[in-house]
Simulated assay, not measured.
Amino acid sequence: MSTEVWPPISAPQLAIEEDATLARELQWLLESLQSTLQSLKSGLEECAALLAPVEPGSTLVLSSHRSENVKGTVTRVGTRVVKGNVQLRLQTLPPPRGAPAFPLVVSSAPQAPTLVLDQIVSVRTLINSCLDIVDVSTWTGDAKNADFISGQLRLLEENIREAKGTLKGGPDIPNPWWEDPLDENIFDPPLPHYLSVNVAVAEAALVVTIRTLSASSPQPSTPETHQSTFVPNFGLRDRLAVALGATRPPTHDEIDQTFTFRGEQVSVKEKVRVESQDPSLMAALAKLSSLERVVKMSRQALAIVMGRDTSDDD
């Protein structure tokens, strides 16, 4: 079965008619994309609202599985952790005298540093950039210029993909824990030098990783280094405890590694990772994934009508 134009027209005239049809189709698609852009803007504004610093914020439970190692809650408001009260019961972290567990409490003092979640800061910045791209595509630039709209859609997709990837986290997101330690004075009492606390976002969940540390080699006892010296290594005590029937020291994926932490070579004695799903972050991640698909399909549709190869968009 074949389709022919009736009455028949010459090949040159047919080419002219085909070009005119493609031009009308391109014009229709560009007008349709303006509605798509407004829909994308609404979705982006919803994502921004989910990450906005709105009280009372999200209170999340932190609890280690099948153990009492970590128990407590934290409260996130926008990009900040404003409250936190977690009790640690670790083999290598002796509690204060008379206390059943080691307290990890976010300080409420006005002068205390703020615990900022840099990943959420980055996501909010990227979403704001996306909103700017939509506004430029709608009001400032030439909405009837296919090349301009194609470039804007590409930029929009890249920003949304980066925002989504930042909420999902990964090997390089955020920075390694030993490179960017939290300020000890975020907590009350301040963190001891042999304790590392890392707070990050992974798969739209708040992840808290606690590490107890020991110096991997003896440090010179000088006035300059005395205050940053780690507590003595508990290796001898641990071995003696095991010989008397106590539980063996914990193992983890960093047990044989050394790191430069606060200017000193350290090893990780004990490591505990706890995560808590954040409903707002989960909703934002789901919306960003949906928006990314819409932008990708819009880019592909425009590329097809413009006669361009869509393989680069995969």
Rank of each mutant, 00 (worst) to 15 (best):
M1I: 04
M1E: 14
E4R: 13
E4P: 04
V5R: 15
W6Q: 12
P12Y: 10
P12W: 09
L14G: 09
I16P: 06
D19R: 13
A20M: 12
T21V: 04
T21Y: 12
S35F: 10
T36H: 10
L40S: 04
K41D: 09
S42E: 14
G43Q: 06
E46W: 13
A52F: 06
A52G: 04
E55K: 13
E55T: 04
S58K: 11
V61S: 13
S63V: 02
S64D: 05
H65G: 06
R66W: 12
N69V: 03
T75K: 10
R80Y: 06
V82N: 02
G84H: 05
N85E: 14
V86L: 06
R89I: 01
Q91P: 07
T92M: 05
P95V: 01
P96H: 09
R97M: 02
V106F: 09
A109M: 09
Q111A: 10
L115G: 00
V116K: 12
D118F: 08
D118W: 11
Q119T: 06
Q119R: 08
V123W: 12
N128A: 08
S129C: 05
S129N: 11
S129R: 15
C130F: 08
C130D: 02
D132F: 04
D132S: 14
V134P: 11
V136R: 12
W139M: 07
D142G: 02
D147C: 02
D147N: 12
F148C: 00
I149L: 01
S150I: 00
S150R: 14
Q152K: 02
R154V: 11
R161M: 02
A163R: 01
K164Q: 13
K164H: 15
G169R: 06
W177K: 02
W177P: 05
W178C: 02
W178G: 03
W178A: 10
D180E: 09
E184Y: 13
N185Q: 15
I186C: 05
F187W: 08
F187V: 00
D188P: 12
D188M: 01
D188R: 11
P192F: 03
Y194F: 14
S196V: 05
S196L: 06
N198M: 03
N198T: 14
V199L: 15
V201W: 12
V208K: 05
P218L: 02
T225W: 09
T225Y: 10
H226W: 08
H226N: 02
H226T: 05
T229L: 08
V231N: 13
V231H: 13
N233W: 07
R239D: 10
L244C: 09
T251K: 10
Q257P: 01
Q257W: 01
T260I: 10
F261P: 11
G263M: 03
E264M: 11
Q265R: 15
Q265A: 07
S267V: 04
S267M: 11
K269L: 13
V274T: 08
E275P: 07
E275N: 14
S276R: 06
D278N: 13
A286P: 04
L288R: 07
S289C: 08
R293M: 12
M297A: 08
R299Q: 15
Q300E: 15
A301M: 07
A301Y: 07
L302S: 00
I304R: 15
M306K: 15
M306F: 09
M306V: 04
R308D: 07
R308G: 06
T310S: 15
D314F: 14
D314T: 11
